[in-house]
Write a protein that binds this DNA or RNA. Structure first.
Lengths: 221, 221
DNA sequence: TCTCGCTATTGACATGACGTCAATAGACAC
DNA sequence: GTGTCTATTGACGTCATGTCAATAGCGAGA
């Protein structure tokens, strides 16, 4: 176990000079790589910068602190998550079955969590560390999703597809938070990636709860 | 705004000597009081100890670090949360209506969150900071609740009360995580306490989702 | 009431990560 | 080849942490 296995290969070599955007991308990539292996609580500026071949102070030429890095990583993923709810929100205009569109959107969202799980987990953790991250994550992402889902629930209630005794806003919040937490729990651990079989059970369970809540039981009644 | 309002009243006075258990209780109480006003990320050993009249190093005579304090606070509350699921788990042996017992248990659990919201929020945050807290919170509390709920779901499925296409373990996990997150979101902010009307909407929404998932819609079908 | 020993308490220290800044040294233009 | 611009860094000050030897309050025994 010589060479603790986590350090970057050789020596830092002679000083190299990059274009600013290149260095910035390198830092973001290093942060992401770091978070694929370690939880956010172990992420230190030094630990990230070692992977770039730059010194620690160089970090501060590009980012205010590690929370800004995490925020930037979120920006690259948040769009994906919101795009799919946009589909659900705007889709199913004519047909009876918002159910199908919902299931579709859930699958797409889950895939995003499978792919970016550890990073999303890191962002969720960082929201507990820093008020700015919390603002961006909880209000910028979660609340937007809640709003979109609530709109859809309202429409489906008016259309008679969903039961009328739901509170759209609160139901949306509960379902979105459940989905976030449950997917993070399943796919957010850097160490243990679930098997295909386990993943399928996760997807099925999410669908079941969403569908039963919004559209009643599918089969037996 | 003279005197930043957060400091303890007068000077520390002459050195006082307490019995160890008394000091320990004082520290726990100070930590709890602190967390009623500030998020966990602002909790510092100094910030807690000022409220006890003791010096910062005295803290380490009683606790390893602030995470141990938070763990101890959880022990005092975790029992409450588990007791009620115990009711649901063991109750409803003969009758058809596990539904009623479930609603009862949810009410009780929600009340716990209303009372200890900020502290529970702090513990949940701290789980992202420290591996030991994560272990106690996620595995010691959440997993126990999941296990209990899963058992109950299995029983209700065998009794034909719940649909047979659910995965008890996964469904339990999703519902428990939803409840935890949603209640923390509603009652875990030190700053904004929701009105009675908002709280009622929260309780109703939780019940709705649990009941519709496990026992199908109550009224129209 | 006085003295003594135990131990609760603390001042001072070492550590680790942070964020800043003046000084340094690549890379490109001319 | 030379000079300028700026990416990069060594060194510094700060803050919170956790430790330890030294201090001083309190109760026990006379």
């Amino acid at each position: 176990m010589l060479g603790s296995g986590d350090e970057v290969s050789g020596d830092r070599g002679p000083r190299r000079r990059r274009r600013p955007e290149e260095a910035e991308r390198a830092i973001l990539a290093a942060a992401r790589a770091f978070l694929e292996e370690h939880p956010f609580r172990e992420m230190t500026v030094e630990g990230v910068m070692v992977r770039t071949g730059l010194s620690r102070p160089a970090f501060y030429a590009y980012f205010r602190d590690r929370y800004e890095v995490v925020t930037r990583l979120l920006e690259g993923i948040g769009g994906l998550l919101f795009a799919l709810d946009w589909r659900w929100l705007s889709g199913g205009e004519g047909g009876d079955e918002g159910r199908e569109v919902l299931v579709d959107a859930l699958r797409a969202g889950s895939r995003t969590f499978v792919e970016y799980g550890p990073v999303l987990r890191a962002i969720a953790d960082a929201a507990g560390y820093d008020a700015r991250v919390e603002q961006v994550y909880r209000h910028g992402l979660i609340e937007r999703l809640v709003g979109a889902v609530a709109s859809r629930i309202s429409r489906d209630m008016e259309a008679g597809l969903s039961p009328s005794d739901l509170d759209p806003q609160e139901t949306a919040r509960a379902l979105v938070l459940m989905t976030e937490r449950y997917l993070l729990d399943a796919f957010g651990r850097p160490e243990r990636q679930p098997s295909r079989r386990e993943s399928a059970a996760v997807f099925a369970t999410l669908e079941e709860i969403w569908v039963r809540t919004l559209y009643g039981p599918g089969g037996s009644c």
